[in-house]
Amino acid sequence: MLLSGERVRSRLVTKVEEMSGQRVLGCYQCGKCTAGCPMASFMDPVPHGVMRLLQLGQVSRAMRTAAVWMCASCHSCASRCPRGVDLARVMESLRLLILRGGEPKVRPEGLPAELLMRAPQQALVSCARKYQG
């Protein structure tokens, strides 16, 4: 991995920081987030590993991790972080970056009319928020 100032302070890192309102360098890699994460065993890398990738400027690699989608947004990490970093917000901003940048995971026009009739409106709104960016 080639490191440089340009990479470490790349536009994407700034973007993640702006969207999440968190400083990625605030994290000192103690691992407490991972230790308490209910989904950590389904993640590779684990939550603090995702933070480390961001610190090293590897945003696109962070975006390709399963962790981003496994995160249940339960905010256990945020409530226990000794450095006050809200990792759940960072995960959310990574999801948003993926969705804004790529193809929407769900197209409302592709959903069966039958489902649209049955599903609660709130579910559709949530779905659009989470998967469409």
Partner: peptide
């Protein structure tokens, strides 16, 4: 090396 991420690193 960055042993936290397990990655070898190179800096010019």
């Amino acid at each position: 090396v960055d042993t936290i991420s397990g990655e070898k690193v190179e800096i010019a």
